[in-house]
Design a binder for these strands. Structure first.
Length: 271
DNA sequence: CGAGAGTCCTGAAGGC
DNA sequence: TGCCTTCAGGACTCTC
């Protein structure tokens, strides 16, 4: 399940294969993603050169001269480099074939991802309009969190997973970040002290930066852009460790449901 | 406005 | 070659 570190790892893995490369053709085998792939998608991209690939939250923006590809990996999506002629499997929905002989292949068994086209030289889109700050940018501060949390009764765990608050914090890293910050996941967002917000900002930054350094983590579906298997997150403090001893204090890790998601935490370390 | 539930989809895992 | 249920996940969309 790609979270921000996986998306960033994908971007970095992809870049050497696509930057400055001309797209020979695009093959859309199945347009039924989160939203339908636009009918003119392949036509718009044919013959274009990819200038750059940037990231906003978990979205990737491919600068393709006359417009931008806006892509999201959803839950099970991946982008890998394959030879242009390689046979497509059941869930290989889109190929971007380059003059170089390489193709970027979008695979997504669950089809929760997206592949959209933004015409023109201005990469604006409703999906990007309301997004919060990048967690690794200077805009992500305790003051920002505190202001956004003011008066909110939602749990802090669900709060930090809201892309309007801060982008890129998915289910795994939300649990991990709250553990690092020593904050109980059920605590109300609007009742968090400024010093705790500061700890949380640091914890989210550390958690994401560490995962990016490790090349992204994954449990099942993620494959790195170069085709190598992604790293498994074997060193999680709490995620998917129900009943196992806390790595810090030894107490049994607990799991609860919040907003139809599993949250893992240490009942002793997190208050 | 916010909170919470529902929704898309496939495959893995577990119970029987 | 077993069938059925549950779960996983991002994040938009709907209802209250």
């Amino acid at each position: 399940m790609p979270e921000l570190p996986e998306v960033e790892t994908t971007r970095l893995g992809l870049l050497p294969y696509v930057q400055g490369q001309r797209i020979a053709r695009v093959i859309v085998r199945d347009a039924r993603l989160r939203w339908p792939v636009p009918a003119n998608f392949a036509q718009r991209l044919k013959g274009r050169t990819v200038r750059d690939v940037s990231r906003r939250g978990k979205y990737l923006l491919w600068d393709c001269e006359s417009g931008f590809v806006l892509s999201h990996l959803g839950m099970s999506g991946s982008l890998r480099v394959v030879p242009v002629s390689s046979l497509a499997g059941k869930h290989d929905h889109i190929d971007f074939a380059f003059d170089s002989g390489n193709a970027i292949r979008y695979t997504d068994p669950r089809r929760f991802g997206a592949m959209l086209w933004i015409p023109g030289r201005n990469p604006t889109h409703p999906l990007l309009d309301e997004l919060g700050p990048e967690p690794l940018s200077p805009d992500f501060t305790a003051a920002h969190l505190a202001k956004a949390a003011h008066g909110r009764s939602v749990s802090i765990k669900e709060f930090i997973m809201n892309g309007r608050v801060v982008v890129g914090v998915g289910n795994i890293y939300a649990s991990e970040s709250l553990f690092l910050a020593g904050i109980h996941p059920k605590r109300m967002a609007g009742r968090i002290s400024m010093s705790r917000h500061a700890r949380l900002v640091d914890a989210i930054r550390q958690t994401l930066a560490k995962a990016i350094r490790a090349g992204g983590s994954s449990l099942r579906d993620y494959v790195q852009a170069d085709g190598e298997l992604g790293y498994f997150q074997v060193n999680a403090f709490v995620y998917d460790r129900e009943g196992q001893p806390c790595r810090r204090c030894g107490a049994a890790i607990r799991v609860i449901r919040q907003g139809q998601r599993s949250t893992y935490y240490c009942p002793a370390c997190q208050t």
